[in-house]
């Protein structure tokens, strides 16, 4: 590879990669809140102790955690049309990423809540607080501080996992890179640019999480 030409090569193809990056950002911006919302909903039955629903949630989490995201994405994209459902590639991609990451997030949130000592439940109830009030005012703030770091981590994994939507035809950063490779025959140069753009994206998001984590902890601590 001739590195002296890398600058002009990058200048030529960066606009096309940037368009792909915007799609990646859009997919992540749709998938992350969806995943968190589903993750929270999945956590409720287990924290509340609803037996039957907890069983379903556990089964869901096991299936989602133990099958590859790429396969789930193919199942949604190529499987739904057999049932007569034609959701477009972005919907299928966002849904697949959200459904799997919700399972991981739910586990993180549940373990965060479980990590707060059960004695605090007893103490709260002993001074006459209702179960819900104990949860909201004593347990939840402590659990939130505990899960912030792992949840941020998980969301960064989510951003990187959005690259799999390239397999079902979403023109994200990864697929845009593959298109450029097909044109230019420069696999290595393009993947370096693609990796650099992902790194910038995840670094910015990671920094954002760290700042909000610090603020949040200060406010509650």
């Amino acid at each position: 590879m001739d590195w002296s030409q890398f600058g002009s090569f990058a200048a030529r193809y960066l606009p096309q990669l940037w368009n792909g990056m915007l799609v990646t950002i859009a997919v992540a911006a749709l998938a992350a809140p969806t995943a968190v919302a589903i993750g929270v909903v999945l956590t409720v039955p287990r924290v509340a102790g609803w037996r039957l629903l907890s069983g379903f949630v556990r089964a869901y989490i096991e299936v989602m955690r133990n099958t590859p995201l790429l396969v789930q994405m193919y199942l949604l994209f190529f499987g739904l049309p057999i049932l007569g459902i034609f959701w477009d590639e972005i919907t299928c991609g966002v849904l697949a990423v959200s459904l799997q990451h919700a399972a991981f997030l739910s586990e993180l949130i549940r373990s965060g809540i479980a990590a707060v000592s059960p004695k605090q439940w007893e103490a709260g109830q002993a001074i006459g607080m209702r179960r819900w009030a104990v949860f909201r005012q004593i347990i939840l703030p402590q659990a939130a501080i505990k899960v912030m770091a792992p949840v941020s981590n998980q969301l960064i994994v989510l951003v990187k996992d959005t690259s799999l939507v390239s397999a079902i035809g979403v023109l994200d950063l990864t697929l845009s890179g593959k298109v450029i490779i097909e044109r230019s025959g420069a696999s290595f140069e393009v993947f370096i640019l693609v990796a650099a753009l992902y790194l910038i994206l995840t670094s910015v998001i990671g920094a954002g999480f760290r700042i909000s984590e610090a603020r949040f902890t200060r406010r509650l601590g």
């Binding site: 994209f77 190529f78 049309p81 034609f86 590639e89 390239s166 397999a167 079902i168 035809g169 593959k178």
Partner: peptide, 18 residues
Amino acid sequence: LQTFDGIASQFNSVKLGR
């Protein structure tokens, strides 16, 4: 337009009516 990185996916997209 749709873009795929493999012929099999491209072909299946038509076969399934996507």
